[in-house]
Nucleic acid binder design. Structure first.
Length: 464
RNA sequence: UCCUCAGUAGCUCAACGGCAGAGCGACCGGCUGUUAACCGGUAGGUUGCAGGUUCGAAUCCUGCCUGGGGAGCCA
């Protein structure tokens, strides 16, 4: 008798036809009749369940098995039968059903439709539902595909620090990291906490980006990437923001903004191809129940070129559009969410790179273009989610970078090491940040970031 | 943080100033191939919390809490 997984059975049930097999898993549904019953069993190895048929004449504990609740863990031994004419290709005729872990009648997950809001409250149980089983298997596969993509191209993965003293980047509000006692912290002369007495001897925080560190490594390994957690203490209450999320930040040397966009486009297409190929049942589920037609649209994206326009062109086409916007479009002002959505959803109907924004609305490290008015920055906007990538060519000219830091009130001493990278063998280089969860949202059609993170951390919410 | 909508049975919702209900789920029973099975029955409630108006409040008013959506910030 062989121990098998549902995944093995789905991949080749013929191999096990008429053999006795053993499967361990959790009851998704149980329907009993007078003399026989059916259990939909999920063992976690595959999106699908396997149907277990049990009969009174074959099971000594029939009455107990018939009363098994949803969520119970069982071990089933029985004969695998091919059923090509039925809705499922095979099933197991049980000889023995042993209860491994009971699930009483107050089990919150019922064989019916639940709201996402309710399932968030039972985040420890929701991975047992169809939707979250699919979401989190896809998340896992995508994480692997990200590494695969970069490793195949010879990129070096670096683990950027999670605790950092760098708070000059301005990417968002910071989570302070401290070992000082909040009720009894040593004070400086003016009555503020004295961080020179703190663990690191200075103010430290959780990272908001591994970019600056990645730049240092790009100027040693040429092509690198980070893939790790990122923390923003912004008071953001939207379906697209979380306090803790994962970011992929490639950084490439001897490369400009165009190389950067090429890499981003190649990466997105690679990730989608992986999912369409290896996550068929999950993608089919999303396409049918979450976002109608998702599979076809993603398929189209793999073969079509992404749109590429400059900020200036975007402003012109938005101004020409008949649509009346709540916020007027004006050169020099950042694009509002409604503008970004219009561009990607109404004008292009596909991913679009918007590049070369006015330098005043972009970060200090972005390279100033020859027109002196714009910076070599790019955002990738996609339908339904909005911005999933933000990137730029970095300012490699030490004198220009110093000017820009001064304009942003950043003390040179704070980022001396970053300036050093320009002083010693600095070359043009570029990179971007891909929001991992936003990519998952885009690829699955799931519209709330809280539903693509196992245990999401958002403002006022840190359960589990 | 601002705007907006909502909180009623385990879940999804109805009742909108006058007896608190349905569907699903659960439980019990029936059914020889079900597959979000089907048929019959039973149980299940401090209507988010606190206060106010009223003869009477789930319903109207005030404050708070929680959740959804939109905006800003961004990935």
């Amino acid at each position: 008798m062989e121990k098998v997984t549902v995944s093995q059975l789905v991949r080749g049930a013929e191999k096990y036809a008429d053999q006795t097999v053993n499967v361990n898993g959790w009851v998704r549904n149980n329907r009993d009749q007078k003399e026989f019953g059916f259990i939909a069993l999920n063992d976690g190895t595959h999106f699908n369940t396997v149907q277990v048929v049990y009969e009174k004449e074959n099971l000594g504990n029939y009455d107990r098995v018939a009363r098994l609740g949803v969520g119970s863990a069982i071990s089933v031994t029985g004969r695998l039968v091919l059923t090509p004419e039925a809705r499922q290709a095979f099933e197991i005729k049980a000889d023995r059903v042993a209860l491994e872990g009971d699930s009483p009648e107050d089990y919150p997950i019922q064989p019916k439709r639940h709201s996402r809001e309710f399932l968030r409250e039972v985040a420890h149980l929701r991975p047992r539902t169809n939707l979250f089983t699919a979401v989190f298997r896809v998340r896992s596969m995508l994480a692997f595909a990200v590494h695969q993509f970069f490793q195949e191209k010879g990129f070096v993965c670096l683990h950027a620090p999670i605790i950092t003293a760098n708070d000059a980047e301005g990417a968002g509000e910071l989570f302070r990291v401290t070992t000082l006692d909040p009720h009894n912290a040593p004070l400086t002369g003016d009555g503020k906490a004295d961080y020179s007495c703190d663990f690191f001897g200075k103010k430290t925080n959780l990272t908001v980006s591994g970019q600056l560190e990645a730049e240092a490594f790009a100027l040693a390994f040429k092509n690198v990437y980070t893939f790790g957690p990122t923390f923003r203490a912004e008071n953001s209450n939207t379906p697209r923001h979380a306090a803790e999320f994962w970011m992929i930040e490639p950084e490439i040397a001897f490369a400009d903004l165009n190389d950067n966009m090429n890499l981003a486009e190649e990466m997105i297409k690679y990730l989608i191809s992986c999912l369409l190929e290896k996550a068929e049942p999950e993608m089919a589920f999303f396409s049918q129940f979450v976002d109608k037609g998702l599979q076809e649209r993603l398929q189209d994206i793999v073969t079509a070129d992404f749109a590429r326009i400059t900020y200036t062109e975007a402003v012109e086409s938005l101004q020409k559009a008949k649509k009346k916007f709540e916020y007027p479009v004006e050169w020099g002002k950042d694009l509002q969410t409604e503008h970004e959505r219009f561009l990607t959803e109404k004008i292009f109907h596909k991913p679009v790179f918007v590049s070369d924004y006015p330098k005043e609305i972009k970060a200090f490290y972005m390279r100033v273009n020859d027109d002196q008015k714009t910076a070599a920055a790019m955002d990738l906007l996609v339908p339904g989610v909005g911005e999933i990538i933000g990137g730029s060519q970095r300012e490699e000219r030490a004198d220009v970078l110093k000017e820009r830091m001064a304009a942003f009130n950043i003390e040179p001493e704070e980022l001396q090491w970053y300036l050093d990278l320009r002083k010693y063998g600095g070359v043009k280089h570029a990179g971007f940040g891909l929001g991992f969860e936003r990519a998952i949202m885009y690829f699955t059609g799931v519209s709330n970031i809280r539903d693509v993170i196992p245990f999401p951390r958002t403002v006022n919410s840190c359960e589990f």
